[in-house]
């Protein structure tokens, strides 16, 4: 399923955060959004996953406008892994992941064996199956984030939004989460801080600055010394390793 935004504008008070944004993520494409802090990446994603309402413009999920869909239906199309997921309670890991089945449930419907099976599969996908009965709050940051990813997977959506999901994670867990997502074969749009990770995993990259898209294209097209200097005000050298992968070295 493709995701499209049309001329999205959003202001907090008199500050315009998003200044008429249009992005398009094609079916099963992995698209990264990069840009400095405060450029509006998260705000744009929040408009896509329906937590913020744009002042004007619209978001399309497939053929329908986001706001025309019931909340349940949009949660059956887009799942989210956001940056901060600290919860203050004693849910078990299984209970947290089971909540991912909520959009598929009618008001009085019980959880069936199939829901538990899906939960189990998703926990296995993220390598957390043996933690199913642990209390969520006792897990490390990386483990919690993998459980949240499992919850998003349990929604069984054709699209996944990642809102800087690997912040605060060490490199092992960053790569692990990105690899899991990469292999899902669903439409992914992700805000990414680490340019090397963006280079390694994205099919296409949008570059945001001051609430606008300033560049778009494949990693090789977008991630140039010139562009990085313009957006982040740092000097960088772009190299390719022996396998032809792109690397950004900051000088």
């Amino acid at each position: 399923m493709n995701i499209k935004t049309d001329n999205i504008r959003l202001s907090y008070g008199s500050t315009e955060i998003l200044k008429g944004l249009g992005v398009e993520i094609h079916d099963k494409e992995f698209v990264g959004i990069i840009g400095p802090n405060g450029s509006g990446k998260s705000t744009l994603l929040k408009c896509i996953y329906r937590v913020l309402k744009p002042d004007s413009g619209c978001v399309w999920l497939g053929d329908e406008e986001l706001r025309s869909l019931p909340v349940k239906e949009s949660a059956r199309r887009v799942a989210v892994v956001a940056q901060h997921n600290y919860y203050n309670f004693d849910f078990s890991v299984r209970e947290v992941v089971l909540m991912g089945r909520a959009p598929h449930k009618k008001a009085l419907e019980r959880d069936h064996a199939q829901d538990y099976r899906i939960v189990q599969e998703c926990l296995e996908t993220v390598g957390m199956a043996e933690f199913a009965d642990r209390s969520f709050s006792t897990l490390s940051g990386g483990e919690q984030q993998r459980v949240i990813l499992a919850r998003a997977l349990a929604q069984r959506t054709p699209c996944l939004v990642l809102d800087e999901p690997t912040n605060h994670l060490d490199i092992t867990h960053q790569l692990q989460i990105m690899k899991i997502v990469r292999n899902l074969g669903v439409t992914v749009v992700s805000a990414i801080h680490d340019l090397n990770i963006a280079a390694a995993f994205c099919d296409r990259i949008y570059v945001m600055k001051n609430g606008q898209i300033t560049a778009a294209g494949s990693p090789a097209e977008v991630l140039t010394s010139d562009m990085i200097a313009r957006i982040y005000q740092v000097d960088a050298e772009i190299t390719r390793d022996s396998r032809g992968n792109l690397h950004i070295l900051f000088i």
């Binding site: 996953y49 909340v71 949660a75 887009v78 989210v80 956001a82 991912g100 909520a102 959009p103 919850r151």
Partner: peptide
Amino acid sequence: ETSVTLGTD
């Protein structure tokens, strides 16, 4: 916020 993404307003 999370519960909107899980289908409940």
